[in-house]
Design a binder for these strands. Structure first.
Lengths: 205, 205
DNA sequence: TGTTTTTTTGAACAATGTTCATTTTATTTG
DNA sequence: CAAATAAAATGAACATTGTTCAAAAAAACA
């Protein structure tokens, strides 16, 4: 089935083309400002074609959402091999921040936009695979820290959530312009500086 | 000037009426789903009237944004009188969480929506008064903790930002459905539980 | 009461997501 | 190779949004 195979491949290519343009435009102009028409125009296809390959705009966001997590996951390849769990935890935090600040629009799509999560709340069997995996990895690191006598008197899951939230919160506030708004002494470096405060606390744990 | 005075009052009343409807609808349906038309219909005025009282939809959001901070500020009246700064810090955290979880849509408008901050980034002289004040109060509490020998080896401003981020991050992730998405053991109580982990850490500081 | 000022109106516009009957292109078949 | 069939692409059309503005209605004033 040569022709059929090629057709499948061509379809995938066009789908990828749409996704790539969507990501490009969306990173350039933001989610709301990126219209289906602009995506279509960018790849020299008509509006209708986009709707042949994606159910609606949300479907595109969902795929990009997944792609974003693949990218974040690749960021975590390095610390995955750090032996000491406490060191790994710190390395992961630094990389998480690096990712968020280098890809603010992608980060927003991944962690603050409601849209990609609506699928989950609708169908209960549905799972947010990427998120669950990433969280599980973080949690296992925290558990390893605990088994090495760190974090005495703490519960793994809430503690993991707290640590994730700490880093996410700083990135989120910074990306949504709340750090400049609040007139910090140096808003540019506040996220890194804030994380170092946490590291100072960790060193005692 | 009886008539003129009354006119001023009437104008204010209508403005308040618009804002109240806007907030109601917006809390019920969300920001994006609340249309100017629905606001107008709700108060039995025409679309055009809304635009007489507010430049655009963003102007409405901005006023609600300010209102939200007044509300949060009133939440903080109680811990304001707690003597011990460390206890005050903890009480503030609990109340912040309470506010966020009780008013998730308002919270989103206040801390994650980009729109209300766009005014600031445009005009540099402009200041985000409410945010600056709230942050200053938190920071002064942290500084008092430091002056009582807590938080040794820490810098006030980054530390304050880190603490704010920690609490904000938990609320933000929960409100944007990331906690249910990640399959936590009990998503409902994870924010409170996460904060208790932080309290445990604070007790050692 | 007639005039002026203020307030309200809602039709109209542009931009957006989305649909679908039609057209174009590609593939298969006789 | 030509006709028939299937697949893919099209873009006009619709509904819904934020927004504007000339006209109408209401209120205030003289």
């Amino acid at each position: 089935m040569s022709t059929a195979d090629r057709k499948v491949k061509e379809k995938e290519q066009l789908k990828t083309l749409i996704l790539d343009s969507a990501r490009k435009l969306f990173v350039e102009k933001g989610v709301a400002q990126t219209t289906i028409r602009s995506i279509a125009q960018h790849i020299d296809y008509s509006v209708g074609t986009v709707y042949v390959y994606f159910k609606d705009k949300n479907a595109i966001l969902n795929e990009l959402h997944t792609q974003g997590f693949a990218q974040l996951s690749s960021f975590f390849e390095v610390p995955r091999h750090v032996e000491d769990p406490m060191e790994r935890l710190i390395a992961m935090g630094r990389l998480y921040i690096k990712f968020a600040l280098e890809n603010p629009d992608m980060y927003e799509l991944m962690f603050t936009l409601k849209a990609p999560m609506d699928v989950l709340s609708a169908a209960d069997e549905e799972e947010w695979k990427e998120g669950t995996n990433a969280f599980a990895f973080l949690k296992s690191t925290v558990e390893q820290c605990i088994s090495q006598q760190h974090f005495k008197g703490h519960q793994p899951e809430p503690l993991t959530f707290m640590i994730w939230s700490l880093v996410h919160g700083m990135c989120s506030l910074h990306i949504s312009n709340r750090t400049t708004g609040v007139r910090l002494q140096n808003a540019e470096h506040i996220v890194a500086a804030g994380f170092e405060e946490f590291v100072t606390i960790l060193k005692k744990e």
